[in-house]
Simulated scan of single mutants.
Amino acid sequence: MIQIFLSSLFVRGFVLGFSIAAPVGPIGILCIQRTLSGGFSSGLASGLGAATADSLYGLAAALGLSALSSFFLNWAVPLRTGGGFFLLFLGARAILSRPAHTAAQSISSRTEGIFASSVSAFFLTLSNPMTILSFSAIFTSLGPVFSPVLLVAGVFLGSAAWWLTLCGIVWKLGAMLSPAAMLWIRRGSGVILVLFAVSVLFA
């Protein structure tokens, strides 16, 4: 009976993580842009960084860590402002991006900055502390949770499954596009990131 309960708790966490990650927002656009410009590993690293941040917020909500929750909520405005300017920077960089002139440059762009991609997406996701309130409301609706770590593990793997799927599809489609088409798609994604940044900064 206990094993069945824990299993269902993990599955609920997995479904929750997948459904939270699936709506296309700034992180989704960023992962698409990075997959096209840096390859599958760069896009996936960004997604896993975001999944880690969501899991941290989820763990704080599930364990009732009021001190950590209060800290993030008290710093909500500075965090959102910082995240907005960072989105603005990423969008502008994508708009101004240029195609690689040589095969060596192309390979280099696909293999460098994997750690940086993950860390930047992690902190960008943390810049929205209201996520903690969303997790708190969802976990409250689930009733008493006897294994919050297992639930949050499900959330992380569910989110990771979405990013793996999204980046895999974009990577396959990107291989069919010409360098010129990929460049304009990256620039278009940069415009969308700038629009997200403006909405964050002036909300």
Rank of each mutant, 00 (worst) to 15 (best):
I2W: 15
I4E: 14
I4F: 08
L6C: 08
F10C: 04
G13N: 08
F14S: 01
F14N: 02
L16Q: 04
F18P: 01
F18I: 02
F18A: 09
S19Y: 00
A22W: 03
V24H: 00
V24T: 07
G25V: 08
P26R: 09
P26S: 14
P26A: 15
I29A: 14
L30H: 06
R34Y: 06
R34S: 07
S37W: 03
S41F: 15
S41M: 12
G43A: 04
S46D: 03
G47M: 04
G47S: 06
L48Q: 01
L48M: 08
G49E: 06
A50I: 03
T52C: 11
D54C: 05
S55F: 01
G58E: 09
G58P: 10
A61E: 01
A61L: 02
S66V: 13
A67I: 12
A67G: 04
L68S: 12
L68M: 12
S69Q: 14
S70L: 12
S70F: 05
F71L: 15
F71D: 08
F71E: 06
L73R: 08
N74C: 05
A76Y: 11
A76K: 12
V77T: 15
L79G: 11
T81A: 11
G82D: 10
G84Y: 12
G84S: 10
F85L: 15
F86P: 00
L88R: 08
F89M: 12
F89H: 07
F89W: 15
L90N: 07
A92V: 15
A100M: 11
H101A: 11
H101T: 14
H101C: 11
H101P: 01
A103G: 09
A103Q: 09
A104H: 15
Q105F: 04
Q105A: 12
S106E: 14
S106H: 10
I107C: 07
S108K: 09
S108D: 12
S108E: 13
R110S: 09
E112H: 14
G113Y: 03
G113D: 05
G113K: 05
G113T: 10
I114K: 02
I114G: 00
A116L: 15
S117I: 03
S117M: 09
V119T: 10
S120Q: 10
S120K: 03
S120N: 10
S120E: 11
F122G: 07
F123L: 13
L126E: 03
S127D: 08
P129D: 06
I132V: 14
L133T: 11
S134Q: 01
S136R: 04
A137W: 01
I138F: 03
T140C: 02
S141Y: 01
S141A: 11
S141T: 00
P144N: 07
V145Q: 03
G154H: 07
V155R: 01
V155S: 00
V155D: 01
F156E: 02
G158Q: 07
S159A: 15
A160L: 04
A160H: 02
A161L: 04
W162H: 07
L164R: 02
L164D: 00
T165I: 13
G168R: 04
I169E: 01
K172Q: 10
S178E: 14
P179F: 13
A181K: 13
M182S: 13
L183T: 15
L183R: 08
I185H: 08
R186Q: 11
G188F: 10
S189Q: 07
V191N: 01
I192T: 12
L193C: 02
L193V: 02
L195N: 04
F196M: 09
A197N: 08
A197M: 06
V198E: 05
V198W: 09
S199H: 12
S199L: 14
